[in-house]
Every structure is written in structure tokens, then in C-alpha cells.
Simulated scan of single mutants.
Amino acid sequence: MLTTDQKEAILRVAGVATPAFPSPGALWRQQWQHDAAPGSRTNPQAGMGPDTAAKQWAHAINTLFVVYSAARTARSLLKAEEARQLSVLRQLQCHARADTETGSAAASSARKARRPRRKSHAMGRSTGVRSGESLDR
């Protein structure tokens, strides 16, 4: 299982905007600002301790990572389905091409089988010439 830091690094490399980890100095400033204006709700992390801020940061990173993983999985499944459909279409195209070629050959041989063979004129009529004799008489 990946740690929150590893997930955050993966998200950064993938180009996803991630929230910055709350540093102790920033938390102190937020606490000071919150104490100065107790009715102010401008910063959701204002007035919380370092542990709470770190937990919220980790929760935000984990949520972003789940969304990123789901989107990546969906893209992968979509590409796999497109590749499968393309493969099926190519197979159908190959079969259609083969059927056309074999269909033409089969049709041609079927036509040849239906029509009687023609006899040449020399073979069809009797010339009265025996083999070895000349036609010049």
C-alpha cells in the first residue's frame, strides 16, 4: 500500500494540483490570525492543531488519488475496448475480403461447371483425315 507522501508524489508527477502540506509555521500564523479574529471562517484550517491539519491534508490527498486512479482505470478500459473493437473490425474486413476472393473463384468455377465444354471446329467435325495424312489432297 502506498503512503500518503507517495500518493502525493504520483499526483504531482501526473500534473494534478495537490494541496501543500501544512507546515508548522503556517499553522502558527493561521492560529494567530484565527485568535485575532475568532468569528472569521475564511480559512478552514485556522484554529486547528498540527495533527488535525495533517489528517485533513492526508484525507485530501487520498481523495484526489482515488479520483485520479478511477479516471486512469476508466481511460485504460476505454482504450482496451477500442482496441478490441478495432481487432474485431479488422477480422471482419479480412473475412469479407477472403470471402470476396473465394466467392469470385467459386462463382467462376460454378459457371464453368454449368456450361458445356465447347469443342473446337477441328475436333467437332470429321475431316476424314487419318493421323499422319496431310490435308492437301
Rank of each mutant, 00 (worst) to 15 (best):
A26E: 15
T102P: 11
T52E: 15
L2C: 05
A37F: 02
G49I: 03
G25R: 06
A60I: 02
S108K: 11
R72N: 07
L11A: 03
A74N: 03
N43Q: 06
G47H: 00
E81V: 10
L64P: 13
A80G: 08
D99E: 11
H34G: 11
T127R: 08
C94A: 09
R130W: 10
D99P: 11
S23E: 07
R137D: 15
P116S: 02
V66T: 09
G39Q: 11
Q93N: 12
K119Y: 06
R137H: 09
G128C: 03
L78Q: 08
R84I: 00
V67F: 06
R111V: 09
V16H: 09
T42Y: 00
G39A: 04
H95R: 04
H59P: 15
G39I: 00
T102W: 13
E101D: 13
G103L: 13
C94Q: 10
G124F: 03
A74W: 05
A36P: 09
A107S: 12
D35M: 00
R115M: 09
D5T: 13
S131M: 02
G49E: 05
T3P: 10
Q33W: 01
S126K: 05
A83D: 05
D99M: 06
A46I: 06
R115W: 09
T18V: 08
S23W: 01
G128A: 10
G49K: 05
P22R: 00
A9Y: 04
R111T: 11
V13L: 07
L77A: 15
R84E: 13
K7N: 03
L27E: 02
I10D: 10
T73Q: 09
G15S: 01
Q91E: 14
A106H: 07
L77T: 12
S126Y: 12
G132L: 03
A107W: 14
A122P: 13
R72M: 09
E8N: 15
T18Y: 01
R118Q: 14
L86R: 15
A74C: 03
E133S: 03
H95Q: 10
D51F: 08
R12A: 13
Q31W: 02
G132N: 12
L135D: 08
Q30Y: 03
R125I: 05
R111E: 14
R97N: 12
I61F: 02
S76G: 10
A9V: 01
W57K: 02
V66E: 11
Q30A: 03
S134C: 05
Q93R: 07
R114W: 04
A83G: 06
R115Q: 12
Q31C: 02
G25I: 07
A17F: 06
V13T: 06
I10Y: 06
I10N: 10
A26Q: 11
D51A: 10
P116V: 01
A74H: 06
G124W: 07
A107D: 15
S134M: 07
A105P: 05
